[in-house]
Amino acid sequence: MSDRDRRRRYPELSDLIVDFTATERLPVRAADVIATLEADGHRRSAKLAATIRQRGEFFDEADADAVLLRSHLELQRLAEEIQHGQRVTRLLRPLVDMLDGPVTIVDVGCGLGYLVRWFAATRSLGADTRVIGVDFNRTLLDAARALADAEQLDCEFVAGDAFALDQAATVYISSGVIHHFTSDDLADFFAAQERAGASGCFHFDVAPTAITPFGAWLFHRARMREPLARHDGVHSALRAHDDDVLVDAVRAGATGWTPLLFDAVGRRMAVLNVMRPIIGLRPELVDAYERELGPLATRLSRP
């Protein structure tokens, strides 16, 4: 199935009910979204979209925002349960320790900034590491800032587009974002990061194993109650990119980086693999990183 088919086959409502660009927010014509979903045969998705309040011909922004905020809070809950912070730290900290000078980690598509705030709260990447969240959804960013303020966390949130990053970083990371992009877009996504002068990237996303669709369905049922969060959670797992698509995109976009996989699909028990990263690193760092990883290096592969 081509990317475009897959995206049409498994649409995510969170992509459709709001429209942010790097600089502005555009109103979304509700009837168009609903009609497109129906035309593509997504009766259930269309029905769900129709539950969002409308103001004139557009989705009511406050209502769409409230649904998205609740969904992202539930997403944070899943991240907490799978201990995503620790998962990212154990791969990122060895790299941070290797690099000289101040390190800045930028989380692209940070949403509510759970990971950024978790790093700030636990200082798991070292006290001097700056952590910044970037997202084009200003509503989520404002909520992320307010949550960080409430706990007096030392982190920043900046509005920006993943394809035109003007937030410089030593390492770019993301979680649950790259399945939103087609494989063609992915190359541009990696290119923007290499162009910005980063040493590498770690982008975590759902691993598309044989049991992923069922597991995603079960977990989103058991752990979420916002219908949109359940709907998108299942569709995002179905949209997840295969390892080779990610590797090819790094090669095509960030031509100066070496692609690496950790827990490549099929290499370990699928059940441990929920969120696995595609890694891109400057080639001169790869050997040292592997050494620094210690025992975990056995799970790293150079495709």
Partner: peptide, 17 residues
């Protein structure tokens, strides 16, 4: 626990179609 963190609906420039 959450709504204070959800800002009041913000007005962004609306493009006319």
């Amino acid at each position: 626990t959450m709504i204070p963190f959800a800002p009041a609906p913000r007005r962004f420039p609306h493009r006319r179609h």
